[in-house]
Design a protein around this nucleic acid. Structure first.
Length: 860
RNA sequence: GCCCCAGUGGCGAAAUGGUAGACGCGGCAGACUCAAAAUCUGUUGGCCGCAAGGCCGUGUUGGUUCGAGUCCGACCUGGGGCACCA
């Protein structure tokens, strides 16, 4: 029997799919639609097994849904702007566009080789003017609506990539790509008003019932809604306020979530970059010097953790809102953030740890006003730990005796009645900084004119395309230093003007591509009818690392575009699956250079393992297990596996063993098992030698229907590892039922089994399935065939083996018909001689029968 | 510090509160082979026992239940998110 030969079989079927155009999705038709999408890749040039796993998962679903009668959209494209192209240009002098497109060609070839059921007619690349020009078009709509604005402010500056980063792109104080400590810089920066949508982004999370709770929770925390009180502390000396702090006639506005603790107030504190601080600093060099000192502190995690609380008493005094005779000092403090709340707080040291640290350092009063349950008001004191738990308010005038929540409401009510503030909602979410000082990105389609100011480029002149011949040999923005590109005329007055040279964050590119797929050639950015047909994406697949980046931005952009009438969908992704990462050990030479796993030889030495370079035997350091990345060189290519065992074995391998959501440490061990499965399946179709054992046609039919049910359920539940396990079991049953018994029933049962097997295998190993299908003599392609149905009656046994427990310990088993009633089962159990023997000397208290499951006898 | 999630054989892992370890990898034994590889068959949680069988066993510990890997409490370990957010 010749073995299955994937090298011949696989290309043949890929050609057949292409010729039949089976994966093209129509924008309409009678079938229900199903849009399945995996996060599009950055075209690095090489596919790694992480990609293969991700795209195979989506493909299993796409093929399954197609077989279940859905009109499936499963497109692919390229997240093609970004720094690696600039780096390649800097290092090798290549054009970033050419470099990117060469990578796209290489990766497209690798993806096609995986046998993915993709509608390639909708392919797009974000770096093509045909795509980013449409992006500029909708960007201008948002600009005109006021959702885009420009503001000078402190921004996150990545000194290595030499660009601004959004808050979401700063991880532990470091750039998400460069890993360099981020600096704070004051720059003119572009923002999208994502905060306008904070409430909707939060509220709709509850409706995303097919999203992982974890991702929803992360977004909820990121949005960080808090409810409290905004309140004005009036100046105790209005004349002082009048001269030095014009514009602060109402005093100092603070935000608090603990208005119940107002009677515990000890000071008011301003952020170092608060406007009032700046006004004071202008006339008082001591304030200016203090502000300068605060600036020096880094923003890195370590710097913040070790940072000491620093404060400066401005000499200003404010009056307590509930007691005109009570004055509080106004400090400037380094731990107050300008971009949260109002940039100013009132400090209640007894019930806030930071305020307590500050108060202890500067000798400010600490007055407890929340009495913990069971504490004695006469003796309760706050030492070095603030009390933040529940309790009853005391030392607090009209709030005395109230519980915390009631006191909050009462305090807010009083402040509102006094006209000194109001209940307020504050978000942690900040507006999205979208401009990058990079040449390889989507140009912002605005023009700076001396007379007209900022002017939008007319839609008829879009796309504002990148120029040829940018110089990437030096660091910085290659677009800005292009000799001619930025010089233009003002669309408003016709005078000389300069183009904006910042480009858009690549997360803008990826925030709407799923909508563009619905009609990738549309003249409008989004064809409304096509988008309304397909959106939302029914099943989105991608890494958890985008929980608050891409997934939040895409939700926001969808809502913003909806409000512009471009789409009707409220949310982009109805279902989300976050697949696990594929990780691998890292290896380093003595000189620190990373080494590719394919060049490494591992030897076990006792309990430990040792790595050497295959060629020279040079000992290597085994590093951490990390996500596959080019920089660490711990990348394994699926092509290596596919070369030896074929694509189908590779596909099975990446889905076997581990559940899809879990991270996996890569080992090639599983591929042998996958390869065996491929051959075992094939052996059943390729004129198998007759078996010699007798088998029962009805048993085979049962096994078939059980397998169909089990595989169907497993795919629907995203338990691909279990689905493959069921395939293993089913193949074994089929192979034990080979001998054609001669009777029609057996022949039919075997044929039914093989027909089901080919179709059950198809989502996982599509080439193999086609070959089997053809060998069965079926017309057409499995890829275009219906999913096998099962008969629920046949998918279960008509006889059950029930374990019998005595006092919870398994003591025997009985055979009963399926669905046997409690009474019947009880009788059979008690008549069983073995059970009776076990029960000798015991009296039966209770017999619990769980239908078709188990019997438990409670006896003593 | 706060908030999540996870701990099951040598390994990857299964298991609507109902026979723990399906399936795969690896190991062991056997078949085929001059031999090896590949393939196939059997076996494989631990302890006791010739066997029949028994006892123990899902991070630790307590609880709920006829019955707990699964539910609840506390703890330990690992992973992730947030973090001077008032």
């Amino acid at each position: 029997m010749p073995r299955y030969n994937p090298k011949e079989v696989e290309p043949k079927w890929r050609a057949a799919w292409e010729q039949a155009d089976v994966f093209r999705a129509e924008n309409g038709g009678g079938k229900p639609k199903y849009y399945v999408l995996e996060m599009f890749p950055y075209p690095s040039g090489r596919l790694h097994v992480g990609h293969a796993r991700n795209y195979t998962m989506g493909d299993v679903v796409a093929r399954f849904k197609r077989a279940r009668g859905f009109n499936v959209l499963h497109p692919m494209g390229w997240d093609a702007f970004g720094l690696p192209a600039e780096n390649a240009a800097a290092e090798r002098g290549v054009d970033p566009s050419e470099w990117t497109h060469a990578n796209i060609d290489a990766m497209r070839g690798e993806l096609k080789r995986l046998g993915l059921s993709i509608d390639w007619s909708r392919e797009l690349a974000t770096c093509d003017p045909g795509y980013y020009g449409k992006q500029q078009a909708w960007f201008l709509k948002l600009w005109k609506k006021g959702l885009v604005y420009r503001k000078e402010g402190l921004v996150n500056w990545d000194p290595v990539d030499m660009t601004v980063l959004a808050n979401e792109q700063v991880i532990d104080g470091r750039g998400w790509r460069s890993d360099a400590p981020v600096e704070r810089r004051k720059l003119n920066q572009w923002f999208l008003r994502i905060t306008d949508y904070a409430d909707e982004l939060l509220d709709w999370l509850q409706k995303l019932d097919r999203w992982p709770d974890k991702v929803k929770l992360m977004q909820e925390n990121w949005i960080g809604k808090s409810k409290g009180l905004r309140l004005d502390f009036r100046f105790a000396d209005p004349s002082f306020a009048g001269e030095a702090v014009a514009g602060f006639e109402n005093g100092v506005s603070v935000y608090t979530t603990r208005p119940d603790t107002l009677y515990g107030a000890s000071f008011v504190a301003l952020a170092p970059d608060h406007p009032l601080t700046e006004a004071l600093a202008a006339s008082d060099p001591k304030v200016a010097a203090f502000v300068e000192e605060c600036r020096k502190g880094g923003t890195s995690e370590a710097a913040i953790e070790t940072a000491e609380k620093l404060g400066f008493d401005t000499g200003l005094r404010v009056t307590h809102p509930f007691d005109p005779d009570w004055q509080l000092p106004v400090w400037v403090a380094n731990f107050i953030l300008m971009d949260y709340g109002t940039g100013a707080i009132f400090g209640c040291p007894a019930h806030d740890q930071r305020d307590l640290d500050f108060a202890r350092k500067y000798g400010l009063p600490v007055k407890p006003v929340v009495l913990p349950p069971d504490a004695d008001p006469a003796t309760f004191e706050v030492g070095t730990e603030a009390y933040v738990g529940p309790g009853r308010i005391y030392n607090s005038g009209f709030l005395d005796g109230l519980e915390v929540e009631a006191a909050k409401a009462a305090a807010i009510g009083r402040i509102e009645a006094q006209g000194q503030g109001e209940g307020a909602t504050v978000y942690r979410l900040r507006d999205w900084g979208i401009a990058r000082q990079r040449g390889w990105g989507c140009p912002i389609p605005l023009v700076h004119c001396e007379t007209c100011g900022l002017v939008a480029v007319p839609e008829s002149e879009l796309p504002v395309a990148l120029p040829q011949g940018m110089d990437f040999s030096r660091p910085g923005n290659a677009l800005a230093r292009h000799p001619t590109w930025k010089h233009t005329t003002c669309p408003g007055c016709g005078g000389p003007a300069e183009r904006e040279t910042d480009t858009l964050d690549t997360f803008v590119d990826s925030a709407w591509y799923f909508a563009r797929y619905t009609d990738a050639q549309a003249a409008e950015p989004i064809d409304k009818a096509a988008a309304d047909y397909w959106l939302p994406v029914d099943q989105y697949v991608g890494g958890i690392e985008h929980a608050v980046l891409h997934l939040l931005y895409a939700r926001f952009v969808t809502k913003a575009l909806r409000d512009e009438g471009l789409v009707s969908a409220d949310e982009p992704f109805a279902g989300l699956f976050t697949q696990g990462m594929v990780t691998h050990e890292t290896y380093r030479r003595q000189n620190g250079e990373w080494v590719d796993p394919s060049a490494v030889e591992i030897a076990a030495e006792g309990a430990s393992r040792r790595a050497r370079l295959k060629d020279t035997g040079e000992p290597l350091t085994i590093g951490d297990i990390e996500k596959m990345s080019k920089s660490k060189r711990n990348v394994v290519a699926p092509a290596d596996m596919a070369d030896t065992y074929g694509v189908d074995a590779a596909r099975l391998c990446v889905l076997s063993d581990s559940p899809p959501e879990r991270d996996v440490q890569w080992t090639a061990a599983g591929v042998e098992g996958a390869w065996r499965l491929v051959n075992r399946v094939w052996a059943e179709f390729d004129d198998p030698p007759a078996g010699d054992s007798a088998w029962d046609a009805q048993e085979l039919r049962r096994a078939t229907h059980k397998a169909v049910k089990a595989v169907t359920d497993a795919i629907e539940g995203w338990r691909f590892n279990s689905a493959i396990a069921r395939l293993h079991e089913f193949v074994r049953v089929v192979s034990a039922a080979r001998a054609p018994a001669g009777d029609a029933a057996s022949a039919e049962a075997r044929r039914e089994a093989l027909s089901a097997l080919a179709r059950l295998v198809a989502p996982f190993a599509p080439h193999l399935a086609e070959e089997c299908w053809a060998r069965l003599g079926e017309a057409g392609l499995v890829a275009a065939s219906a999913w096998p149905a099962y008969d629920p009656a046949l998918a279960q046994d008509d006889e059950r083996v029930l374990p019998v427990q005595i006092n919870g310990k398994r003591r025997g088993e009985i055979r009963v018909g399926a669905g046997a009633s409690e009474g019947e089962v009880e009788k059979i159990v008690l008549d069983d001689p073995e059970i009776a023997r076990r029960l000798e000397g015991l009296s039966i208290r209770r017999v619990i029968v769980v239908k078709d499951r188990i019997v438990n006898i409670v006896a003593a």
